[in-house]
């Protein structure tokens, strides 16, 4: 195979290695999606083809070996490889076509947003109930009565009523739940419940009651205090 062919192969390989292994490790960068890598490689290939076909000599040097390989003239020991590629190409095209056209057997994918954005009126509300030991204790009492059947006596989302619910009740001990949220967010979620979620939260699946129909606001604020204290978490604040 001529040098004119080795150079593009080396350039394509180096470009792939750069995009896949070097670029993501540059500070401030990130992993590049496969689709973007393919796009960059196609651009590189286009550049190589334009460059290699600028003159008649370079064009012959570039396409010549490929033509000889495909027609099988004077390629000696590469003949089995040629037959292999000629068989493999239609098989790959058939396989890709099958994958693209075969009907899916899987249930629809569900991309549920666990913490969707709250309505504007529920952002930045401060808890109006003083954080006294009595109020926290009272909040824990309300929590035990109303919330613990699902969210668990240990605030871990593993209450006795939790097992059948999908999505599962939130685990407050997990640092990615209430520790990432403001008290006003919890106030919204407790007050409006599952049916108050926006569409990206898939409200039709949530078993969370709409507690505003049953509990006064003051109890809800106390429950929030009890939850944070019991789960050993602190609310997120905007300093």
């Amino acid at each position: 195979m001529g040098r004119a062919l080795i150079r593009p192969i080396v350039i394509m390989g180096a470009m792939y290695a750069f995009l896949k292994f070097v670029l993501p490790n540059i500070p401030g960068s990130a992993e590049i999606p496969a689709s973007l890598i393919i796009l960059y490689l196609l651009l590189t290939l286009s550049g190589i083809i334009i460059f290699e076909t600028l003159s008649a000599e370079s064009k012959d040097a570039f396409w010549g070996p490929m033509q000889r390989f495909l027609t099988g003239e004077n390629i000696g020991g590469l003949q089995p490889l040629r037959y292999g590629i000629l068989v493999l190409f239609p098989v790959l095209v058939g396989w890709q076509t099958y994958n693209a056209t075969a009907p899916s057997d899987s249930p629809p994918a569900e991309n549920r947003v666990i913490h969707p954005a709250p309505p504007g009126e529920y952002t930045g509300l401060a808890n109006p109930v003083p954080k006294t030991p009595e109020n926290i204790m009272q909040g824990k009492g309300f929590y035990a009565a109303f919330c613990s059947p699902c969210h668990g006596a240990n605030f871990d989302g593993k209450g006795p009523a939790a097992r059948g619910y999908n999505p599962p009740p939130a685990n407050f001990a997990d640092p990615t739940t209430i520790a990432m949220l403001q008290e006003s967010y919890l106030f919204w979620r407790i007050k409006k419940g599952g049916v108050g979620l926006p569409i990206e939260g898939m409200p039709w699946k949530s078993a969370m009651p709409r507690w505003e129909l049953e509990l006064p606001d003051e109890w809800i604020w106390k429950i929030i205090m009890g939850e944070y204290d019991g789960a050993h978490q602190t609310p997120r604040t905007w300093e």
């Binding site: 409006k192 569409i199 409200p203 039709w204």
Partner: peptide, 16 residues
């Protein structure tokens, strides 16, 4: 339309 699993009760932000 999506319906809430509890007897298709109305949702506040989504028409069920």
């Amino acid at each position: 339309k999506k319906a809430h699993f509890a007897h298709g009760q109305p949702m506040l932000l989504v028409e069920g």
